[in-house]
Design a protein around this nucleic acid. Structure first.
Length: 296
DNA sequence: TAAAATACCTGCAGGC
DNA sequence: TGCCTGCAGGTATTTT
């Protein structure tokens, strides 16, 4: 599932594969893929044809391609300054840069053809939780994602401010980690991995945590994300791949996620799976004992 | 106002 | 073989 490291791998692939190129044609084959573009698929297409991509950016798990304010010569009318093509991969979205003419993927939703007739950009999404949209004038930071907090790998991440906000919450620590308005980029996999590394149970009430404890947790969040980034991300069932279609290798390094019934690599305890927020949490019951007064 | 619950989706595994 | 159920989970929306 794409979390911050996976999305960053994709962003780097887009930087290599599509930045600097002019879009010649856009085919939307599944309207749900552009449902967040309320003006519809035809408008989506008309805003993109003739535009040059000038940057590939990321905030948390959102990506956006900044578009040149001026259209390419002889092509479409400009819509004004710096629009943005926003992308979210959801659970199963892929942005692939592939040779034009290569066979369509089963769940191909949107195809981008470029004026240079080189490789195509394809948005492929099995479960259609992801999607694309245009934000007019949003090249710097699109309005629909302005509420997303900075991630722990962002140089402008304000750790002291995040610790303060986290301690004012009245909820469980994992819920807080997954709240993208508090800090972004953390999903179910890396939340479980970082909590294991910090020896914290997911139901630990945030208001009982002191500053050094939260700081130590954020160190582990950063460490697990950086290691995953080095490995090219985590892939399950090939639902996450890079823009070149390559799976990540971090699954081999997971300590708890998806390892219910197996021994903890630190203490030998048996890793357990609990239902949590309509999904799963994996913990070592010895390294991560539940708190006396849990907040789920 | 904050926190929690729910809806949105498809493919697959497992049980019967 | 075919049907059914549960599960995967990020985000927006609704409810408490």
């Amino acid at each position: 599932m794409p979390e911050l490291p996976e999305v960053e791998v994709v962003r780097r692939g887009l930087e290599r594969g599509v930045v600097g190129r002019v879009i010649r044609e856009v085919e939307v084959s599944h309207p749900r893929a552009v449902r967040r573009h309320v003006a519809g698929a035809a408008d989506f297409r008309s805003l993109l044809v003739g535009r040059r991509i000038i940057a590939a950016n990321r905030r948390g798990k959102y990506l956006w391609l900044a578009l040149c304010p001026e259209p390419a010569a002889g092509e479409h009318t400009s819509t004004g300054a710096g629009d943005a093509l926003i992308a979210h991969l959801g659970m199963s979205g892929q942005l692939l840069v592939v040779p034009s003419g290569s066979p369509d993927q089963k769940h191909l939703r949107v195809r981008f053809v470029f004026a240079d007739e080189g490789r195509e950009l394809r948005f492929v999404d099995q479960r259609t939780f992801g999607g694309l949209a245009i934000d007019v004038g949003g090249a710097q930071l699109p309005a629909p994602i302005a509420h997303i907090a900075r991630d722990p790998l962002d140089p402008a991440f304000d750790e002291d401010a995040v610790i303060g906000r986290l301690r004012r919450r009245r909820t469980g620590i994992k819920r807080a980690l997954l709240d993208q308005t508090l800090l972004s980029g953390v999903g179910n996999i890396y939340a479980d991995e970082a909590l294991w590394a910090a020896r914290l149970h997911y139901a630990r009430p945030t208001e009982t945590m002191n500053r050094p404890e939260i700081r130590r947790l954020l160190v582990e969040v950063r460490a697990v994300m950086a290691a995953a980034l080095d490995a090219g991300g985590t892939s399950f069932d090939r639902l996450y791949v890079s823009t070149e279609g390559v799976s990540g290798l971090f699954e081999r390094s997971l300590e708890v996620y998806g390892r219910a019934g197996q021994p903890c690599g630190r203490c030998g305890g048996t890793i357990r799976r609990d239902a949590f927020m309509n999904r799963s949490s994996f913990t070592c019951p010895i390294c991560q004992p539940p708190p006396r007064h849990p907040r789920w």
